[in-house]
Design a binder for these strands. Structure first.
Lengths: 177, 177
DNA sequence: CATTCTGCTTGCAATATGCAATCGGATACG
DNA sequence: CGTATCCGATTGCATATTGCAAGCAGAATG
């Protein structure tokens, strides 16, 4: 996490901002899981981030202008983390990461259903998602009606999860009943 | 560079494959700079990679199936590194990284001209570029004629560089003559 | 007043990175 | 030949980052 700039190349600078093992995972959890508090990010983390690492990343991401931090009115010690526009603009990048990972890495079905939908939806769906995120994190009311992209992704995730839970062990043998 | 899998999430797995400070820069140099030998990657590296890190990354990327290694017939100690299809499929991801970096990070004009062109060209240009890379790295002849995307990007880069060299220091004050 | 929850810190061991020097073999040049 | 250069790495060592477990003080809850 040294902040010294090695070169002015866009790829390099993006890598310096997000190219470690945790930063983008934190943003993913805020973005797709709507985790807004420290404890939520800590205890519901799929990968099991350590508290000191999470604290360091939240601090750095806030300093970098990717997250903003606000007091929670319901609890004087609670902090609410929100995505900034800069982070919301990462949606296409994250979608491409998901698409590539889904194609070439040993992903689990359950966790990749969202990536699949994002890939199928393409830029129009990404734009919708970004609109929804702006409402959720920046307070800008959206014009579109109906369920948000986040809700649709989450519903599909739960559906895939339910389908998998109902059908244990059978997958490994390729059976369907 | 631990290889233990933390979760089956596509984002996480992509991050585990490429989410360090150097892996993607090596791929970038092979892809855009057509650096195919160890020494080329080492000495012409914009960010100044150390030889032990480069060796470790080349080894790991080869093991991961992102690069392939072949003997150079002209020199028994030379190795030629080539992109695999898996790495060529990173073009959209890298293009999005460039686009985001260009928008939000303090990039240098000279080094971001290629990212700009890739962004403007969009998916059709990315597809062309990937076709060209397949010819260069996988030996698959391309159907299209004319200069490759790599050549066009490089020409634009040289042009931007020349323009900047001819006009020293003036940029900082916003003068044009 | 004790318990739980809040974001976050500390100590410490393990791992990764950065840097400079160097390796043994292959090639080029005289 | 002989020696200088090039080849893809490797080694030793200092520093930086990570991972893990435990603990912190203040705020809310019962």
């Amino acid at each position: 996490m040294t902040d010294s700039i090695r070169s002015g190349c866009p790829i390099n600078l993006t890598l310096e901002a997000l190219g470690d093992r945790w930063s983008l995972l934190v943003i993913r959890d805020v973005m797709f899981g709507n985790r807004r508090h420290f404890r939520e990010l800590l205890s519901r983390s799929e990968e099991g981030i350590a508290s000191n690492i999470l604290a360091a990343r939240l601090k750095r991401l806030t300093e970098q202008g990717l997250l903003s931090r606000a007091d929670d009115p319901t609890h004087k010690q609670k902090a609410i983390y929100s995505l900034t526009e800069k982070a919301i603009q990462l949606v296409p990048l994250i979608a491409q990461m998901g698409a590539w990972g889904r194609r070439y890495m040993p992903v689990t079905q359950e966790l990749s259903i969202r990536a699949e939908l994002l890939e199928e939806g393409g830029q129009p769906l990404w734009d919708e998602f970004m609109e929804d995120l702006r409402e959720l994190h920046l307070g800008k009311p959206r014009t579109r009606k109906g369920p948000t992209v986040g809700e649709r992704l989450h519903a599909a995730f739960l559906e895939a999860k339910g389908r998998q839970d109902a059908e244990p062990a059978a997958r490994a043998k390729g059976k369907s009943a």
